[in-house]
């Protein structure tokens, strides 16, 4: 018994050491981003990046919120934040629902030509987006969505990538649950909403996180669709923060840090669901 617990102690020690070292590697750019956002302009560039804001002249460690103040009161930034919230707030749930609905059918409900249709859908992922850009903008214009926030929502309301991911997860769910429900006379929609969705929390969380991040950070689509500055989204406002010629990382990083906060919140909320393992009953292996 004593030997066993010693083994477990060693094991956890090694594990945590490894995790901690990797974590430092992963976190340092983020820390640098935050620390740079707290620096004054002159202290940003050093031969070796400093993890704390250090005054070059006096050598003191300090922190300033001036960059945040500038970025936040800067005209358009607050509106951009709001626009991004609206777009992400509508598009992420909409997309999640449509993708899950489709993914479920592709995984579980047979209909003629289903798998061929799925492969056709999948093949659209293989064409580089740059080639599709202009015809897409054109369609968006024809639909009357050009230069509007709906133009950022409707053309982004489905993701084949997510359909594929969800389908793969629905494939792992045991069929017995659905079959039992069907015998009880439940409809497919009820099965989908009451059985499948609750069981799929981990993957739904993954999709929510990743599609939120994707929409939150997307620059190219808003760039080509939106002309009116009052409809600019956060990535556009961020790109406009620093000129191509005078590079000001402390401002960029303050803006980027603010833009990261909603992502972190979404991640912190949903990541918990990823590990909440569900105990299934009646599984056959």
């Amino acid at each position: 018994m004593a030997r066993l617990s010693k083994y477990w102690l060693c094991r956890s020690l090694v594990l945590y050491m490894a995790l901690l070292i990797i974590a430092i590697l992963m976190v340092s750019p983020f820390v640098w981003m935050i620390s740079t956002s707290l620096k004054n302009g002159p202290d940003v560039f050093t031969p070796i990046p400093t993890l704390f804001p250090i005054n070059k002249k006096t050598g003191d460690i300090y922190a300033t919120l001036e960059n945040y103040r500038y970025v936040l009161i800067k005209k358009g930034f607050a509106i951009a934040f709001f626009n991004s919230l609206i777009v992400a707030g509508i598009v992420v749930p909409l997309k999640l629902f449509l993708d899950a609905l489709g993914g479920y059918a592709f995984a579980r409900i047979p209909f003629p030509g289903r798998d061929k249709l799925f492969l056709l859908l999948l093949s659209s992922m293989m064409i580089p987006g740059i080639a599709l850009l202009i015809p897409r903008v054109y369609v968006t214009k024809v639909l009357g969505l050009y230069d509007s926030l709906w133009g950022l929502i409707i053309p982004m309301s489905v993701s084949v990538f997510d359909v594929f991911l969800l389908r793969q997860f629905f494939l792992t769910l045991p069929r017995e649950l659905e079959e039992a429900a069907m015998i009880d006379g439940a409809s497919r929609l009820r099965i989908f909403i009451q059985i499948i969705l609750p069981l799929s929390r981990p993957v739904l969380a993954v999709v929510t996180i990743t599609s939120f991040i994707w929409h939150w950070n997307d620059l190219i689509w808003p760039l080509v669709i939106i002309n009116t500055p009052s409809r600019y989204t956060l990535p556009l406002a961020l790109a406009l923060l620093t000129s191509g010629q005078s590079h000001k990382p402390h401002l960029t990083m303050a803006g980027a840090a603010i833009a990261t906060i909603p992502i972190l919140i979404v991640f912190l909320i949903f990541q918990k669901r990823i590990l909440k393992g569900i105990t299934l009953t009646g599984l056959k292996m």
């Binding site: 609905l101 489709g102 059918a105 409900i109 209909f111 249709l117 859908l121 489905v158 497919r188």
Partner: peptide
């Protein structure tokens, strides 16, 4: 069943 399957994928297909 097929009909329901088709209905389920209709939004995705329309988008596609």
């Amino acid at each position: 069943e097929s009909l329901i399957g088709i209905l389920f994928v209709t939004p995705v297909v329309l988008y596609f």
